[in-house]
């Protein structure tokens, strides 16, 4: 009898510690973890991942001289020097007073250092180059800078994430915080961690930016999307990157 109670006691302790370990485990899941093995395989195999075609084009752009300064990216940045960069943006550029995302940073280099015209948002070149840069952060943890000036922008991004909008009166959080993992129509609602941008989305049959993805959701909610150059996108991205802090970058990712 005593043996039984000791065994029961041990079993209880074991189960309790197991439950605690479960509770302490990171509950966050990336879009990669939510997709089926076929798509995961497609992403993992560089010869099958369609985003790698854009990376190749971006690599060529990297060494191409441009602008009145007749400089290429490679003239200033050594090979591989972009490691970890995509994992920490948006950030406030030197001399700046508000954050820019990776695309914004690329365009600052174009206008300030290359004396060239900025790339258009969602332009082929911007997608190519950002895919090439993002690939260099693959496998690294998302690591937003500890810059106290970012706090206010990030907080605004959080308000945008939690605020209701559109004719359907939904917030991002309604789906991606409160109902992630459930089915919206036939699709599993992801937790919305921006680990893989730019992404090759099968629905688009193309590479696209986080801004494009955010715009999709807003249109779905029947909300007026932010203007193309709106700072709201950056603030939202800041919030999302902080929410995904420590998660593994898998850019350029494939998504359904």
């Amino acid at each position: 009898m005593r043996k039984l109670s000791v065994a029961l006691g041990l079993a209880t302790v074991f189960l309790a510690s197991l439950a605690m370990a479960q509770a302490g485990k990171d509950q966050r899941r990336s879009g990669y973890q939510d997709m089926g093995p076929t798509l995961q395989k497609m992403q993992d195999d560089d010869t099958a991942n369609p985003a790698m075609l854009y990376v190749q084009a971006g690599e060529a752009l990297w060494t191409q001289k441009a602008g009145a300064a007749d400089k290429s990216c490679a003239d200033c940045h050594s090979a591989g020097s972009m490691k970890g960069v995509a994992a920490r943006y948006p950030a406030i550029p030197p001399g700046g007073d508000r954050p820019v995302d990776l695309e914004g940073r690329i365009n600052l280099c174009r206008t300030e250092h290359q004396k060239a015209a900025p790339f258009g948002a969602e332009s082929e070149q911007m997608l190519d180059l950002s895919a090439y840069v993002a690939l260099q952060s693959r496998g690294m943890p998302i690591a937003p800078p500890n810059d106290p000036r970012l706090a206010a922008f990030r907080m605004h991004g959080g308000q945008l994430f939690k605020g209701r909008e559109g004719q359907l009166n939904l917030s991002c959080a309604n789906c991606h915080d409160d109902n992630a993992g459930k089915k919206l129509g036939g699709a599993t609602i992801p937790q919305a961690h921006p680990t893989g941008y730019p992404i090759y989305r099968l629905e688009w049959q193309a590479l696209g930016s986080l801004k494009r993805r955010l715009r999709n959701c807003m249109i779905g909610m029947r909300a007026e999307p932010f203007d193309e150059d709106s700072e709201d996108y950056i603030d939202l991205e800041l919030y999302l990157m902080d929410r995904a802090r420590g998660m593994t970058m898998d850019a350029p990712a494939v998504r359904p």
Binding site: R164, E165, Q167, N169, R222, A223, E224
Partner: peptide
């Protein structure tokens, strides 16, 4: 009490 409703709606 709706925010940012798309123009067409």
């Amino acid at each position: 009490h709706l925010q940012r409703v798309a123009r067409n709606f």
